[in-house]
Nucleic acid binder design. Structure first.
Lengths: 250, 250
DNA sequence: TGTATGCGTTATGTATACATTAACGGAGGA
DNA sequence: TCCTCCGTTAATGTATACATAACGCATACA
């Protein structure tokens, strides 16, 4: 193995996977572009075997696409693909909310959710909201959704939601940052927060159908969000994930 | 590479993946059991690299679980995991049906669905249904569901449904065979067929909500189906996929 | 007798060499 | 001038050698 510098703190496979995902999401690799294994070996510092394992994982994750003749390319998504992914995720989260409501959740379990809610409320009190506050919002929102998913106590469902969330743009909060300068942004955040509140309420009162419905609506809000973001491309640099959208739709 | 016998008609990776999946689903490898790479190399005939790629894919597919200290083991599922998976799939198929209805589908596209329907009708005319007819039913039913999924024209959704279907027991028809000798079986098949009919009708009339609702109901029928199968374990040999259920729940 | 430690074996993680196939380019003919 | 075919090249698919870490067993000590 000789003189190669090896970082033994994490496995080479994980290192390669993270590095490659970063390259894809940052736009360093453009959609449709073929990923060269040798190039990946050089940029990630791992050897071909772990790189290949990382490529397989990223394919399963949906970021890459296998080329029939061999190798992988960065997957390209249409606007429709993305809005469908958002709705898909909303549907799954709706099911999770329903499960939580129907199966019962203790007050103690809802506590962290409510803390999240309060923290977001605090952020939204700023008008207009700062870019730093936006960044915190995205983190808190992601945390809220993750906690909500966990509440369902359904490993298969949690797993599937995680997979659906792997595509970064499928995240309801994913596009918010792209429009921080827009007046509609604040409104959308406030409405989203109301959705969060209603979901908690519905789960507390064991209203499964209501919990599910509001999560779906929440996703539709995110789709509106997406449309807004696409109509205001000037802020695109704020959301590198958008790099995955087919250039044809630009 | 010497004297190893190599079948070049398919890639070694695919060959290994199919062989290993077969071993898992047939119950040759028991849930919770660690999969030895060397052993897999011997049973599949591929070398370690393709075997490892196959293992990674099967892990992403949900059939295997990574062991923190290294390697993989066959995943074990509880009864709850399985019924959740069925409901999950039903929810996704419900969304697909909704998309199909809302986005419009031509009569020509519905043709193959209707043919499937008619073929199943023909099978169900037998009372009691034979084991061969059951087998045909399973195939036709899987085809119907696949066609229905395709109608949504939503690649992300289709992809997700495929992933959800990878777990064989998540298939609505998966448990039917386990109870071919039960009188309830025929009834369940007939009700399921009615669901199929209603979905087509709803899509034709662009009733998205109705199409979605009936697919969900269809999944709940499959859950009932599962309960029935679990209460009649004598027919388990007919459905090796059930081998994935944790022995603890036996 | 039970527990702890150390060594040996075995399996996985990693790297690289080899084989094969697909793609690209050049040359020759129509 | 364009098309086709062949050869070269570069990439992926496959196999295996090597390194490392984990597990188990045996032995010794408490």
């Amino acid at each position: 193995m000789a003189e190669r510098e090896v970082d033994r703190s994490v496995s080479q496979t994980v290192k390669a996977q993270l590095a490659l995902r970063d390259q894809i999401l940052s736009g360093a690799l453009r959609p449709g572009e073929r990923i060269s294994e040798l190039q990946a070996v050089e940029t990630t510092g791992a050897s071909r075997t772990p790189v290949r394992m990382a490529l397989v994982r990223l394919e399963e994750e949906g970021l890459l696409e296998a080329i029939p003749s061999g190798g992988f390319m960065v997957k390209a998504f249409s606007e429709r693909d993305i809005s469908d992914s958002i709705e898909l995720r909303g549907t799954l989260e709706g099911l999770a909310a329903r499960f939580s409501a129907e199966r019962g959740v203790s007050a103690r379990e809802l506590e962290p959710l409510k803390e999240c809610l309060a923290a977001i409320d605090e952020l939204l009190r700023q008008v207009p909201i700062s870019i730093e506050a936006f960044s915190s919002y995205v983190t808190l929102n992601a945390r809220f959704h993750a906690l909500l998913t966990e509440l369902s106590r359904s490993p298969p469902l949690i797993r599937q939601i995680d997979r659906a969330s792997a595509l970064p743009f499928a995240s309801p909060s994913g596009f918010v940052m792209a429009q921080s300068a827009l007046p509609e942004a604040q409104q959308i955040l406030i409405i989203g927060q109301e959705h969060h509140r209603v979901v908690i309420d519905a789960i507390e009162n064991r209203e499964g159908a209501r919990a599910e419905a509001v999560m779906r609506e929440h996703a539709r809000l995110a789709v509106r969000n997406l449309r807004l973001a696409l109509r205001n491309r000037t802020h695109l640099d704020l959301l590198p994930a958008l790099a995955l959208i087919k250039t044809a739709t630009d």
